[in-house]
Amino acid sequence: MAQNNDLLKEIDTAKAAEVYQPSFKALQIVTGQSTKMPAKKDFLIDIAHRFGDVSEGFKSFFGLDHATTKLGVVYGLTDGIAVSASRHTYQKTFELGVKYRILKQQGNSPFEIVGYHVSDINSELSTDQYPDLRFNDRLAYFSQLLISRRFSENFSLQLSPSFVHKNLIDPAIEDKNLFSTGIGGRYKISRRVSLNAEYFLNFDDKTFYKNPLSVGMDIDTGGHIFQLVFTNSQPNTETGYLTNATGDWAQGHFFFGFNLYRVF
């Protein structure tokens, strides 16, 4: 009897392990992070571009003359913990991050929960602009709790409550602290292609910047995930895309770009 019970437990555990699949194929939904985690010892190169305002037309070759670029790396310390580092042309920012899984959508758990934290260093600031500039003024911090559910083979949805703190701001156009809630989803339309979308509602008292709205497409090439992006927020930095969205979809002002992750 005891042996039979042990065997049944092992079968149930094996079945639970077999059914686990991540809610998203890529580490990002569009611009924001997803609950997808790299595997242990995976080393990824992360390249992203956001070109200029498409509405400028042929004058700037539909924004291609005014790109912001990200070059970064991601490393899986374990199957549930990853670290990242990147350099951005936007504000010449250096970015360090950590991402960790709290819960899997597996067995009795209906959700996947992941924590994500980033520190940004704005190296573009200079004492010519700010004579009393200190290193601490260059820093900004970003935290997210990513909560996703894979409803079916084709459809996943995620909530992303977020918090941003900047040590140096212009109080006329932004707040030092920003709370935001994002919702994003993925719908698989073929074996290797999915359509993605996300929207962040920022809870602040300023109206200068827009709420980020992005749509995109995942293309699985086998060796890497290639993401096409259309968004009203040009920065690639975590603190930037959330707090500095200048485009207006209603007026045709948005930015085209892509994300590319390559596993080595």
Rank of each mutant, 00 (worst) to 15 (best):
M1Q: 12
A2D: 15
A2H: 12
Q3R: 12
Q3P: 07
N4Y: 11
N5H: 15
K9G: 07
D12H: 14
A17Q: 13
A17D: 14
P22D: 04
I29L: 04
T31C: 11
Q33A: 15
T35S: 09
M37S: 06
P38G: 02
A39N: 04
K40W: 03
D42G: 08
D46P: 06
D46I: 02
I47S: 12
A48Q: 04
H49Q: 13
D53N: 11
G57E: 02
F58K: 13
S60K: 12
F61M: 10
F61N: 08
L64W: 01
D65Y: 09
V73I: 13
V74D: 12
R87F: 07
E95K: 14
L96F: 03
K99R: 00
R101K: 07
R101W: 00
E112R: 02
V114K: 00
H117N: 12
I121T: 06
S123W: 15
S126G: 14
Y130M: 07
P131A: 07
D132V: 00
F135H: 06
F135Y: 03
L139E: 13
L139Y: 02
Y141D: 02
F142Q: 08
R149N: 05
Q158W: 07
L159M: 08
S160V: 05
S162T: 12
S162V: 14
S162H: 12
F163Q: 01
F163P: 01
F163Y: 04
V164A: 04
N167I: 07
P171V: 11
P171Q: 15
E174N: 12
F179R: 10
F179D: 13
S180I: 07
T181F: 11
G182W: 03
I183F: 00
I183R: 00
G184D: 03
R186L: 15
I189V: 10
R191Q: 02
R192N: 11
S194P: 12
F200N: 08
K206N: 14
F208N: 11
Y209V: 01
N211L: 06
P212K: 04
P212T: 08
S214F: 00
V215S: 05
M217I: 12
M217P: 14
D218T: 06
D218I: 10
I219Q: 07
T221S: 01
G223L: 08
F226W: 03
Q227M: 08
Q234A: 04
N236P: 13
N236V: 15
E238T: 04
Y241P: 06
F254H: 07
F255M: 03
F256N: 05
N259L: 02
